[in-house]
Simulated scan of single mutants.
Amino acid sequence: MIKTRIPTLAVAALLVATALPATAAPDTPSPQSLVPSDVTVAFAVYDRALGRTTLSHDPHRRIRSASVVKLLIALDYLEARGPDFEIPPEDLGRLVPMLRSSDDDAASELWVLDGWEKIVERMVAKLGLTDTEPPVDVGFWGYTALSAADVVTIYRYVLDEAHPKYRAFIMDNLHQATTCATDGFDQSFGLPSAIPGEVAFKQGWSRFGDTPPRPCVEPPADRTPLPAAKDGPPPPPTPEADLDLTSPAMHTTGTYDPADRKIMAVLTLEPVGTTWDTSAHRLTTVTKAVYLADRMLTG
């Protein structure tokens, strides 16, 4: 796994920012203060050993999921078929690259196969998600709304309540997540670059174009056009719309520490025109700050 090296000055700034809990020093910079005011950031860290959320900022802010919804697509597939079901090769060929390499075509195929927005509706009801809603335009699964708090709930369900067979399938694949996504983007930002040791992760990004800033893998072969996709042209804004469908989104979610003790979700929205490299570096910096702040609080 590629480990992005945070510049020395940035590390120093992060250590200063997380040296004391905010309650002990109100003027100490917080992780969210490390980003410009026009960047939206929401995060949550849950400690399974302590049984509580240990650090959060704006955890119930609703942000479009991008590829993070693939966690729900995979979980719903497994839950709907039962633990005795043997996944056929054609579906393994979708689920594995979707979880490990964020394969969008695989997600689109499973989205259509299992009922489009009904996937999200079933998972909201089963897991008790409070901020998650299916996309208004059901053809674009990446427009699903969720929050950092709900992402934590999804991981908690997988790790502590789901059938062991489902848990093993999802977490084993996330622990083997690849540096390169199927579409050629480098998905090693955030958790895999900011947190030492082994991590399991599922990333998300949207509106950075279709061409990565530099090659990461050979472009995948063309597949049959699908009736569903991650995202598309955003609808005209309406007064009642509360979900940003236009700003570039980049998210990092997953687990770390032995036995997946810690769950972290960091969700961001960037100003229109932000480059991939700028967003990836910024998200990794914030993720490192969240990690260090939580370490100071809980060890």
Rank of each mutant, 00 (worst) to 15 (best):
A181G: 15
D277Y: 00
D160L: 12
K165E: 12
L174Q: 02
A49R: 10
I2K: 13
A12I: 14
M296P: 00
A145R: 13
Q176F: 00
M1A: 14
R223K: 11
I63K: 06
I170A: 03
D277N: 13
T144I: 06
Q32D: 08
L14V: 15
H175K: 10
V39P: 09
P59L: 07
Y256C: 05
W116R: 14
L110P: 07
R282E: 08
R48S: 09
L92V: 08
C216D: 06
D244N: 15
G51M: 07
M1I: 04
Y46D: 03
L243E: 03
A80M: 06
I87D: 04
D260S: 05
L297N: 03
R207W: 06
P83A: 12
D242I: 08
G254T: 01
A249G: 14
I154F: 02
T238A: 15
V120W: 03
R64M: 12
R94N: 12
E198R: 15
I87P: 11
T274M: 08
P97C: 12
K70S: 11
P196M: 05
A25D: 14
P97K: 11
V112R: 11
A280H: 05
Y291Q: 10
L78W: 08
A181L: 06
T132C: 01
L113N: 07
A177T: 06
I154N: 05
D244P: 08
V272Y: 01
F208Y: 15
T40M: 14
F201Q: 08
V272A: 01
A228K: 06
V151K: 01
G197A: 04
A80N: 09
E270F: 15
V266H: 11
T246K: 13
V151W: 02
R156I: 06
R261Y: 00
A17E: 08
V272K: 05
I263W: 04
L243I: 10
A200S: 10
A259S: 10
V16T: 12
R64T: 14
P97T: 10
A42H: 01
N173Q: 15
Y46V: 01
D150C: 02
Q203E: 09
T298N: 04
A25H: 12
T298C: 04
T253V: 11
S102R: 10
S193V: 02
R156D: 14
V41K: 10
V112C: 09
T224E: 15
V138C: 09
K165C: 00
S67C: 13
V152N: 08
D160W: 01
D38F: 03
S67L: 05
I154L: 02
E133T: 12
G128C: 07
I170V: 09
I195E: 07
E121R: 15
M264K: 00
G139S: 09
R48V: 04
D231Y: 15
D58A: 14
Y155P: 02
T252H: 10
A125R: 14
E161R: 12
T153Y: 00
P215M: 09
P192A: 11
I6M: 11
G51H: 10
F43R: 03
P36E: 08
I2T: 13
P225H: 02
F43E: 07
E79S: 05
A265Q: 09
T53Y: 02
F189Y: 15
P21Q: 07
S33K: 11
E109P: 00
A221W: 00
